[in-house]
């Protein structure tokens, strides 16, 4: 990052920066002069991320190896002096989490939740995007209406849905009763509660996926389709041979991002069910938050949870990257 403050070369020099070969001695110097441009472009982001996430993350890794809690981290507040008495405990925090019975239950549900949500987001989002990408009457109206859920802030959406699901006074049960059926305690039973939270998250997440896909579809040159039609390809063939490959860049990105995003989706679960009934709908993040942040905060425990979640996602991302590379993607 420090390199970004290097003196910019003259405009003419940089114009051909990429193709130029310098004779100047020293690899670093050469790297500097040929790459300063790229580095300058990413520097602001890198700096902000490093300070705001990197530092807390590094500290979190350290804390996770101690027994630090809100009670034993030293501090002085006015007349109260609290000595620092936390100690290094090695991997105890990790062992404690990994050996607790609930952990693996939560992993299983978190994975189910992530796969179901991302799968539905992607499938529905792509389907709608393809439909909207056709020449169609009222196309922009459809598009705006379908995107509306995105304009409702997530926490408001969570409240609306909780209200729709309400077992005694909710609209969904209201309609069921009008139809002569008995109401369902949507959020009171573990199975329906799980379906219910997935439905809320799908409702919230589809518009983003749809728009991202639509953006991707728009950048597929129309000439490709025209050529395929001339060659007599059916619409399914066109979809398989042009649309899917054309969306590949965007798809691989949004699926990966969506997975990480859903895996750590705190607000929906927290606001819709608060993890209930019991702790059935609790995913790893909400569970970790509750374990570590109710009452006297357990900083070391929460950090260990964070690192475990991070590790699981890193493994996932590395696997994903490998798979893509083996299929010839330049990742």
């Amino acid at each position: 990052m420090a390199v970004s403050t290097g003196q910019p070369p003259a405009a003419g020099e940089s114009a051909r920066g990429r193709s130029r070969r310098h004779d100047s001695p020293g690899r670093l110097r050469r790297a500097l002069s040929s790459h300063w441009y790229a580095w300058a472009m990413i520097a602001p982001v890198a700096v902000v991320m490093l300070v705001l996430i990197g530092w807390p993350l590094a500290r979190g890794v350290y804390l996770s190896l101690t027994d630090a809690t809100e009670a034993n981290m030293g501090r002085t507040i006015g007349v109260n002096v609290i000595p620092s008495t936390y100690e290094f405990v090695g991997l105890d925090n990790y062992l404690q989490i990994l050996t607790s019975g609930l952990f693996w239950d939560k992993v299983l549900w978190t994975v189910t939740w992530t796969v179901a949500c991302v799968g539905l987001h992607y499938g529905i989002g792509l389907g709608l995007a393809v439909m909207l990408n056709r020449e169609l009457r009222l196309r922009s109206l459809y598009r705006v209406l379908l995107i509306l859920p995105w304009a409702v802030p997530a926490f408001v959406a969570a409240f609306i849905w909780r209200y729709l699901y309400n077992s005694d006074y909710g609209v969904i049960n209201g309609f069921l009763k009008v139809a002569g059926l008995s109401g369902v305690g949507w959020l009171d039973d573990p199975v329906t509660a799980k379906i219910a939270v997935i439905a809320v998250n799908v409702w919230i997440g589809v518009p983003f996926m749809m728009v991202a896909m639509l953006g991707g579809l728009q950048s597929i040159p129309a000439e490709l389709y025209e050529a395929a039609e001339v060659d007599g390809a059916s619409s399914w063939q066109r979809f398989k041979a042009i649309t899917l490959p054309g969306l590949r860049q965007v798809s691989t990105t949004v699926v990966l991002l969506g997975t990480i995003w859903t895996f750590n989706m705190f607000p929906i679960i927290f606001l819709v069910t608060r993890g209930g009934p019991g702790s059935e709908t609790e995913i790893l993040v909400t569970y970790a938050f509750r374990e570590a942040f109710t009452g006297i905060r357990n900083y070391s425990g929460s950090a260990a949870w964070g690192v475990i979640i991070l590790a699981m996602l890193v493994v996932l991302a590395v696997g994903y990257r490998r798979t893509l590379r083996s299929q010839g993607d330049p990742w």
Binding site: L57, G60, V307
Partner: peptide
């Protein structure tokens, strides 16, 4: 990939 890793640490804990 580093950018991506920053998204993996749960916000609630940060």
């Amino acid at each position: 990939w580093l950018l991506l890793i920053t998204q993996m640490f749960p916000v609630a804990i940060l």
